[in-house]
């Protein structure tokens, strides 16, 4: 019972901690909405298919783009900082369960993700790409669930990056990876070589599932994309675990 309470209170303060940090809030909340306004609303009237406008299509891809940032920065930068600057070490001297630490960051990242997706849905409806609740809710669900993969990726970065280099490293991974996965401009507009490369990038599979929930996908089975996401998650968690073991080993071993 007390353990559950610890997890929840840890999550509450993790959220407050980042919510009061403009360096986290402004880029994670503002960038996806800003980009969506530029591209989604600017080019919104273009038709992608008979029933799907560009504004609707980009709603899913910028939603993907947004939740990835919340997860990558929330985990990667903060874990690297707290590891490198002794804060995590101090927490390790307390009876805090380490699961509370990770759980809190995951909840925090999901709350920010929910805010981003809600913001985009509102912007979308203003831009004439209002999606019915029957599509909006599955989109939200998929984006929140899929963000777990990127929490794992952020954790992996956080366990290997230094406190000062983490933000730069995350940006170097995040921005090209997002572009090459077709989150900024639709994947089918990109050169064929990039379209092939995208299969090894986790955001590509993530965005395909997200697009599918609002009927803007290419059709076909979602199973390969789901499997890809699961494999990436396991891979990132394994890397993060290696870093965790290395840290504990440096301390203990």
């Amino acid at each position: 019972m007390r353990t559950l309470k610890t997890h929840l209170i840890e999550a509450k303060y993790e959220f407050l901690k980042l919510f009061r940090l403009p360096a986290y809030v402004i880029p994670t909340l503002a960038f996806p909405m800003m980009f969506y306004m530029l591209f989604g609303i600017g080019l919104g009237k273009q038709k992608i298919s008979a029933s799907v406008t560009m504004a609707k299509y980009l709603l899913a891809t910028y939603g993907t783009f947004g939740v990835i940032a919340a997860a990558l920065f929330g985990f990667g930068v903060s874990v690297a900082g707290e590891r490198g600057q002794g804060w995590l070490e101090l927490k390790r001297t307390t009876p805090m369960p380490i699961t509370a630490y990770f759980f809190a960051k995951m909840v925090m990242s999901m709350i920010f993700s929910a805010i981003i997706v809600t913001g985009l849905l509102v912007l979308g409806s203003v831009a004439g790409a209002g999606v019915p609740l029957t599509e909006a809710l599955p989109l939200m669900g998929v984006l929140l669930l899929g963000s777990i993969t990127f929490c794992a990726m952020g954790l992996a970065v956080g366990y290997f990056a230094g406190p000062n280099s983490a933000a730069a490293i995350v940006n170097i991974i995040y921005l090209p990876m997002s572009f090459l996965s077709g989150l900024w401009i639709p994947i089918f507009v990109l050169p064929r070589a990039i379209q092939k490369l995208a299969y090894v990038l986790p955001p590509f599979h993530f965005s395909q599932i997200a697009l599918n929930t609002i009927g803007a996908g290419r059709g076909g089975s979602m199973l390969p994309h789901v499997i890809a996401m699961i494999i990436f998650t396991i891979l990132f968690l394994a890397i993060a675990y290696a870093g965790y073991r290395r840290d504990e080993g440096k301390m203990y071993g």
């Binding site: 407050l16 009061r20 002794g86 804060w87 070490e89 001297t93 406190p163």
Partner: peptide, 9 residues
């Protein structure tokens, strides 16, 4: 402990 940086917010 000697903590270099404590969450400031």
């Amino acid at each position: 402990l000697q903590v270099a940086r404590v969450p400031e917010t």
